[in-house]
Write a protein that binds this DNA or RNA. Structure first.
Length: 301
DNA sequence: TCCCAGGCCGTCG
DNA sequence: CGACGGCATGGG
């Protein structure tokens, strides 16, 4: 089984990176993770500084998990107050994965107004219902369906993926992109704002989805997606955001404040969302209020 | 049972 | 612009 040894000064946490809500096509097996990326069926396990894997070559693994990125350098650039410092300290080794654009885009179209387990279910169903068999070696495992496969899917197959009202958006966007080979290269070559405007023309793609795709698939690390959790965290922990009520104002603040790696800051904050939003009790009891482990909600800086 | 979830779209001031 | 209702589904 091939493996890579992580550099001592380049932390990486596989579990954290795969379970933090940036990617939805991976599942835990007994000891390892199993993931479908493109046409690859990848298994990977981490033991300390050793990453052992199958189904892909070393170059792909290093690229996909962004092991070539100087993480400490990025984190030192965003670590500018007690709030983000808490998040950075709590999520050591979290890296932003480089996802294939279509899988990422389609996943986040399916992600709107849903929780993470629900998104994972939809992604899994899409693969099972509309994906291509990976190989005779892995019966029952299917790739993420291409735009063409989704555009041409029987309505009942698409509806059977628990997509709800998102099914129409996904199908329409799949239809447009199936006829637009080269869209990935085009987006990739554009600046962040132009790429964003381009993605916003697609059905089911609003600011949040566009920003997630730019961050998680196109390496536009200044992107600062704002979901309900990030909105809570920013308005609660950052006085400058106290009264900001629109998406763009919060996102623009995040980008201006954290700089060109604002997306990393966003992801670390998101990873600590229940604590930083003051909702440790969410789902049980009355929720809200507890400040366990939370740095001062109005940090002096 | 209830509330909420990595929101978007159409519409109306 | 900004605000607001509707939307389908599943998880806790």
């Amino acid at each position: 089984m091939p493996s890579v040894i992580l550099a001592k000064d380049q932390p990486f946490d596989l579990d954290l990176s795969l379970s933090c809500g940036q990617v939805f096509g991976w599942e835990r097996e007994e000891t390892a993770w199993r993931g479908i990326v493109g046409q690859k069926l990848i298994r990977i396990v981490q033991k300390g500084d050793r990453l052992s894997f199958s189904g892909a070559d070393t170059g792909f693994i290093r690229y996909y998990f962004a092991l070539d990125v100087d993480l400490p350098e990025i984190l030192s650039s965003i670590d500018r107050d007690p709030v983000i410092h808490y998040a950075v300290s709590s999520c050591s080794g979290l890296r932003i994965i480089r996802q294939p654009p279509w899988e990422c885009l389609a996943s986040f179209i399916c992600a709107t107004y849903s929780n993470i387990p629900g998104i994972r279910k939809r992604v899994h169903l899409l693969c099972q219902n509309l994906g291509a068999p990976l190989s005779p070696e892995y019966p029952g495992l299917f790739s993420f369906p291409s735009p063409t496969a989704i555009a041409g899917a029987e309505t009942c197959m698409l509806s059977g993926c628990s997509l709800g009202y998102r099914a129409g958006y996904l199908r329409e966007t799949a239809r447009v992109l199936a006829a637009d080979t080269g869209w990935e290269e085009r987006i990739d070559a554009l600046s962040f704002p132009k790429a964003r405007a381009n993605l916003l023309r697609l059905k089911g793609v609003g600011k949040k989805v566009a920003d997630c795709v730019l961050l998680f698939a196109f390496g536009k690390w200044e992107s600062f997606p704002v979901d309900v959790w990030i909105e809570r965290i920013m308005t609660r922990c950052y006085p400058e955001c106290r009264d900001l009520r629109t998406y763009d104002k919060i996102s623009d603040f995040g980008r201006a404040y954290f700089g060109k790696y604002a997306g990393y800051a966003q992801e670390y904050l998101y990873c600590c969302r229940t604590v930083l939003a003051g909702r440790v009790d969410a789902g049980k009891g009355r929720g809200g209020g507890s400040n366990l482990y939370v740095p001062d909600s109005q940090p002096e800086r």
